[in-house]
């Protein structure tokens, strides 16, 4: 017994060094002045004050949150019916479709995002198509739309897979029971299927929203320099400007936003989870857990 517990000691040290210490360093840098060594430093909240009193930074933060919310909403609206379709297909078809959705996820994100540049660029197929359909000639690259498209493209598979899993786990006899009790298709969906699939939707939302807020290469590749998000600001502070302290402060702000939204999602999740497990106390489920 004791012999085995000692096996975890290297990893405990590793966690302290490579996970906890970096987090503490961000916190440390965010409240100290630049140019100070690790031995001599002065505390200051200037970086946070600078961020929250600058209209531009607040605007960028707001814009990042808005685009992440838009991405999430689109992913739910488009992803749900697709997941529903997959869940109701035959076994063979379902496996095939899931594989078809996962293959692109295996390809490097940068490569997949880069692939859109050709389609969206001036004189590209999408622009010509829109022109042919009579929408007129629009600039597609380097717009908010392009960034939104890139985000939906990168993150929607997570949403589809999460919802699909929760739909497949659902006990099919509940649907029959609902029909036997006189509910029509729409009622069954609204009152049985949809509520039971909510945990999947919720975890899908956290898998889409969180990376969307902090993403910085999608706006850089598809939005050009025109469309700055909070991730780009952090990148800029560290790579171009070299203001680590200010960059750390922004990272802290972002980490706090993440934690808050995680907390909200978790609470939402536990509420739906409670409701679901209340209706799922079947002998089979007991045995499985």
């Amino acid at each position: 017994m004791k012999t085995f517990s000692r096996l975890s000691i290297p990893y405990l040290i590793w966690l302290a060094m490579m996970v906890l210490l970096p987090m503490l360093l961000i916190a440390f840098y965010s409240v100290t002045d630049s140019g100070n060594g690790i031995i001599s430093f002065t505390f200051t909240f200037d970086h946070f004050i600078k961020f929250f009193t600058d209209r531009d930074f607040l605007l960028i933060l707001w814009r990042s949150l808005v685009i992440a919310v838009k991405t999430t909403v689109i992913c739910v609206i488009l992803g749900y019916p697709v997941a529903y379709f997959i869940a109701n297909s035959s076994d063979r078809m379902r496996n095939g479709l899931i594989l078809a959705i996962t293959i692109p996820m295996w390809i490097n994100m940068l490569v997949r995002t880069y692939a859109w540049i050709g389609i969206l660029s001036e004189g590209g197929p999408l622009q010509s198509l829109l022109e042919m359909l009579g929408f007129g000639s629009h600039e597609l690259m380097y717009t908010e739309g392009a960034v939104l498209l890139g985000m939906v493209y990168n993150f929607i598979p997570f949403m589809i897979l999460q919802i699909n899993t929760s739909l497949c786990k659902m006990d099919k006899s509940l649907i029959e029971a609902s029909a036997d009790l006189g509910a029509d298709k729409v009622q069954t969906f609204m009152r049985v299927v949809f509520p039971l699939s909510l945990p999947g939707v919720v975890s899908g939302i956290s898998l889409v929203f969180l990376p969307a807020v902090s993403s910085f290469f999608i706006p850089k590749l598809l939005g050009g320099g025109q469309f700055f998000l909070i991730g780009n600001v952090i990148e800029n502070q560290f790579i171009t400007v070299g203001e680590w302290n200010f960059g750390s402060a922004i990272s802290m702000i972002m980490a706090v936003i993440m934690m808050c939204s995680m907390y909200l999602v978790r609470r939402l999740d536990s509420r739906t989870e409670g409701r679901v497990s209340g209706s799922r106390t079947l002998p089979g489920g007991r045995l499985a857990s």
Binding site: M18, V19, L20, L21, P22, M23, L25, I26, Y29, L210, P211, V213, S214, F216, G231, I234, E235, F238, W244, G247, S248, S251, M254, A255, M258, M262
Partner: peptide, 18 residues
């Protein structure tokens, strides 16, 4: 769970500062 939950960019900056 930290590296999994945290936004990648925060993990990245932490390691860079380290």
């Amino acid at each position: 769970d930290f590296p999994i939950m945290n936004p990648e960019i925060v993990t990245a900056i932490g390691l860079m500062l380290l």
